[in-house]
Design a protein around this nucleic acid. Structure first.
Lengths: 125, 125
DNA sequence: CCGCATCCGTTACGATACTG
DNA sequence: CAGTATCGTAACGGATGCGG
């Protein structure tokens, strides 16, 4: 039986199937979660407001929700777990860190296949 | 200047930034698009109803919308472009096929990191 | 101030019925 | 069989409030 994981506002993670791709998309299949991981991978630990200042402009409620879910799933954690929230940066866990090869492959694909549509794509961010 | 691509119902693809990860998520960052690619990679050409019968149960309007967008972006195409729609299977283009390493990395990550939450995850589908 | 939570209008999704 | 139309629901996105 799959364990129940809930998002901030009581939304349960629904595992649609036993397929690993489908299961990954059940938690990362949106426009923001992997950008949070990307920021942490490329820039190191980030505070709440660091994320807000990232180029794609995530809104505050979505950010709080995703940080909560990624924390529940043990992909990220606070640098100082016992410290106050203020200026307490998030960092990747081993599990989150291990998404790096996936993101590298995705970025490579994007550079090779989307430049026709979005010519300004850069080499790496 | 980025080229304008529209989804079935006039929704424009919005390139949030020049980051390759972000750009990939602008088109693949949802719960269904990569499952369509997965089905084509693992099972070969698929008809409209083949997709509907896949384990995660996509609904018809979402499927039609995603097939349209992926076709516009040249990730998939009809097997018989000039043929009638009926029984005309979709297949991957070179561009779609080259998402294979990304999906393999994602599946590996899922098997290694999500089994605690969704223990029924299988080796590969 | 910073890290969220709440409110609310808009958009996307999802189930189902329906059409060529 | 391959989609389209409709419509209720859920998620998003921006503005704003508030506590530590």
């Amino acid at each position: 039986m799959a364990k129940k994981i809930k998002t901030k506002l009581d939304k349960e993670v629904d595992w649609r199937s036993v397929c690993p791709v489908s299961s990954a998309l059940d938690i990362l299949g949106d426009k923001w979660s992997l950008l949070i991981i990307r920021d942490l991978l490329t820039k190191g630990p980030q505070t709440y407001s660091d994320f807000l200042q990232s180029g794609e402009h995530i809104s505050t409620n979505i950010l709080a929700d995703r940080l909560h879910l990624l924390t529940c799933l043990n992909l990220i954690e606070k640098s100082d777990a016992e410290g106050i929230a203020r200026n307490n940066a998030y960092k990747l866990t081993k599990s989150g860190e291990s998404l790096k090869p996936t993101l590298i492959e995705l970025a490579k694909w994007s550079q090779d296949n989307l430049k026709f549509y979005n010519p300004d794509i850069v080499e790496i961010v």
